[in-house]
Write a protein that binds this DNA or RNA. Structure first.
Lengths: 212, 212
DNA sequence: GTATAATTCAAACGTATGTTTGAATTCTGG
DNA sequence: CCAGAATTCAAACATACGTTTGAATTATAC
């Protein structure tokens, strides 16, 4: 069961993501990446122009599709409600499922993807921060607007903070879930994703409904 | 209103913490720190042995007292219960109040402290991670044990994940709360801390009580 | 006041970094 | 088969980094 031989560009992207996930983005040098990927040192500049270009490409490759799937899932819930206020649990599931499922599916990156994504959400690197804000901004906006509809009567400031409490909690748990597995290469079984989605949804729904 | 002239060692600690909070720990060089603190380049090695020694000292100075205050607050709640199961809201408050209060009190570091602490909790730097685990380990242990007593009947695995959802949420909100203010130098009023504590406690209590 | 210790300072050291270069090699279309 | 483009490669570039050094300066104790 040999891995398919990827071309230089893709091998750099994969190796860079794995090393970024393990050691943090700014702690990984171009030399370490090219050595681990078994390509020449100059290949990074040849294909991505610069180290920053590589970082941007690695982030974009994961953040863009994920945020897009979240937006689609949220929009599907809104459409399904047919004008009525959307169900809270469906909103929460649409928000969290794409990330949890991909982080637990080895074929889609699994723990390495999850750990890398968590790094991105907390990294001080300005390129990473810009890309994350750019793509997840629309997700957060939709998520918040739909929560306002689904939790009527709650002061919007309270709801805004609670949404961020949930986002931060989800990211933190994804970190715990992937921190060991990402480096050891141990496989996560996709069937577990449902369990974690349910856990998060019931937790979040209760926390959002209660009055202060 | 001139600032008190601190000696070299303390000025390095203060400036390093501020720059770490703003740009991330590994993104700040010894040269940037000494230039901003207006001390000689060699002062860092003279007082702290190495850059790693400085990082350790900066982290230790904040993490040790904070974790100690959390442990004391949690122990006080346990003692106050006189053997009975401690009240959930008091546990949650003991856990979150020390951090929120200090992050909103300009005299104790305020937003710079808060942002630095959040950086520490997510930083890939091994020295930081070791110090954080060392000091906050006992906090987490106590917090979890008391939650088990206060929320009977919940599967411990569920409770463990919910605790981490709360921890991550708190850290994320502290980041939002301090991200702008830390760099702009704007003051936070201490009187707001109570509001944020209440917000977190009611949110967390509801999220912990509900059955899956 | 003077000797001793503590601190500050400018300069340099060795190393690691991101990037560039130009030749060598491999791939591609006719 | 071959010209031209695409890619790979070893080597070097300039810069920034953490650290060390030894002299200069300041503070401390007797």
């Amino acid at each position: 069961m040999k891995a398919i031989e990827l071309d230089t560009r893709d091998r750099i992207l994969d190796v860079a993501e794995r090393l970024f996930a393990e050691h943090g983005i700014d702690a990984v040098s171009v030399r370490k990446i090219t050595a681990a990927a078994k390509v020449n040192l100059a290949a990074v500049n040849y294909y991505f122009g610069s180290k920053d270009g590589l970082i941007g490409a690695v982030v974009e490759r994961r953040v863009a599709p994920l945020s897009q799937r979240q937006v689609q899932a949220l929009d599907a819930v809104r459409k399904g409600g047919k004008g009525r206020a959307p169900r809270l649990d469906l909103i929460l599931e649409a928000f969290c499922r794409p990330m949890i499922e991909q982080a637990m599916d080895p074929k889609a990156g699994g723990a390495v993807f999850g750990r890398f994504m968590v790094r991105c959400l907390a990294d001080p690197n300005p390129i990473v921060g810009k890309k994350v804000a750019e793509h997840f901004g629309s997700v957060g906006k939709r998520f918040y607007e739909m929560l306002v509809q689904a939790v009527p009567g709650m002061p919007q400031e309270d709801l805004w903070w609670r949404m961020h409490l949930l986002m931060g909690g989800l990211h933190h748990c994804l970190m715990i879930l992937t921190v060991h597995k990402a480096s050891s290469g141990r496989r996560c079984m996709k069937m577990d994703a449902d369990k974690y989605v349910k856990r998060f949804v019931s937790f979040a729904a209760a926390a959002l409904k209660v009055r202060i």
